[in-house]
């Protein structure tokens, strides 16, 4: 039992948290790809800037003497998401829309998104330097320890308050997104445009409006993902830039353009990373009692060494691209 709890603490919880962040990021990337047909690298900067918006708001709220029972990062999240959505719309209007109007190829937009990445990152570093910040400088990070000695475990189940909230908020967002895409007129129009942009235009769908809605969702969910990442670890200017490829991996594994695939892909990559570096010896140690002397387990028995954790996502990405570029889930559109 102790071993199982250890496994849950090390793999299930950290994998779920990581998976949630990847999933929220990947949804934005996959929606932008579905509607605008280009790989939007600057999504990492929507996430990072969103986290900084939330950080500034949290600081301001604390300065105004507002207190809340949950971490301030979550309290200000809705406002930060609105700001991020406006920011994303501004980036589109300023940098991508003029290129689209000229009829530029998707690859030009991809390169433009690199330009945007560099500019936004440069600006963030200009204002905040290269150091790292924490949401928990003034408040404490609550840690729940669920005592499971009744079940024969000597270890408690450990989860922090932000982690718990993160999983709940992600689940709620996914449900909301699902309802939006399947029930609302605009959500269906988004799916229609991702399916067949020409026919969507012919049907009289206001494609410019759909593009705007896409950026609003991408910006808002990006902000959510970035803020959560910053709440789980620390906030720094290259916060999301470092994980943009795992996020792309999640989107591609799920099939670019497919929102549900991105969520599944995000969770898959998150769990894969946690599982790959998990030290199996901790769980299999009881076996040492029955194993012969020469077959005792080594101190660490992980599938890959910890320093290669991020590499797991890259390997999954490359293998997916080679074996099944349309994603592991059956592509719905032909």
């Amino acid at each position: 039992m102790t071993e199982l709890i250890f496994f849950i603490n090390q793999v299930v919880i950290s994998g779920a948290v990581l998976g949630c962040i990847y999933a929220l990021g990947a949804v934005g990337i996959t929606l932008v790809f579905g509607i605008l047909r280009f790989a939007h690298f600057a999504h990492s900067e929507l996430m990072t800037s969103g986290a900084f918006f939330a950080f500034l708001l949290a600081g301001a709220f604390a300065a105004w003497g507002i207190t809340a029972p949950i971490p301030m990062g979550f309290v200000v999240l809705p406002i930060a998401m609105v700001i991020s959505a406006i920011f994303a719309l501004g980036i589109d209007k300023g940098f991508y829309a003029p290129l689209r109007k000229r009829g530029a190829k998707p690859v030009t937009l991809l390169i433009a998104s690199i330009g945007v990445t560099l500019m936004v990152q440069g600006l963030i570093r200009l204002f905040f330097g290269a150091g790292s910040y924490s949401f928990f400088e003034t408040e404490t990070k609550d840690v729940f320890r669920v005592d499971l000695s009744a079940f024969g475990s000597t270890r408690p189940l450990v989860i922090t308050e932000p982690q718990l909230l993160m999983i709940v908020v992600t689940a709620l967002s996914v449900i909301a997104l699902h309802l939006f895409l399947t029930r609302s007129r605009l959500g269906k129009a988004m799916r229609a445009m991702a399916d067949n942009a020409d026919l969507a235009q012919v049907s009289g769908i206001n494609t410019a409006l759909v593009v705007r809605v896409t950026w609003i969702i991408a910006g808002a969910l990006g902000c959510m993902a970035g803020t959560m990442l910053a709440l789980d670890v620390t906030l720094k200017p290259d916060l999301a830039f470092n994980i943009i490829i795992p996020i792309f991996a999640a989107a591609i594994v799920g099939g670019l353009g497919q929102a549900y695939g991105a969520i599944a892909g995000g969770l898959l990559i998150g769990f894969a990373e946690s599982l790959a570096v998990f030290n199996w010896t901790m769980v299999l140690r009881p076996l040492n009692a029955i194993l012969p002397e020469w077959l005792q387990l080594p101190a660490t028995l992980a599938f890959v060494p910890t320093e290669y954790k991020l590499t797991v996502a890259f390997v999954i990405l490359v293998v997916t691209l080679l074996v099944r570029p349309t994603g592991i889930f059956k592509g719905a559109s032909s």
């Binding site: 269906k188 129009a189 799916r191 229609a192 067949n196 020409d198 026919l199």
Partner: peptide
């Protein structure tokens, strides 16, 4: 207008296709 090719949203249900026609 009914285009000649690719004139349905293949991933969407028949009813959703019709709804898209009524978007405006």
């Amino acid at each position: 207008f009914v285009p000649q090719e690719k004139n349905v949203f293949t991933s969407m249900s028949v009813e959703e296709n019709l709804e898209m026609g009524a978007f405006t």
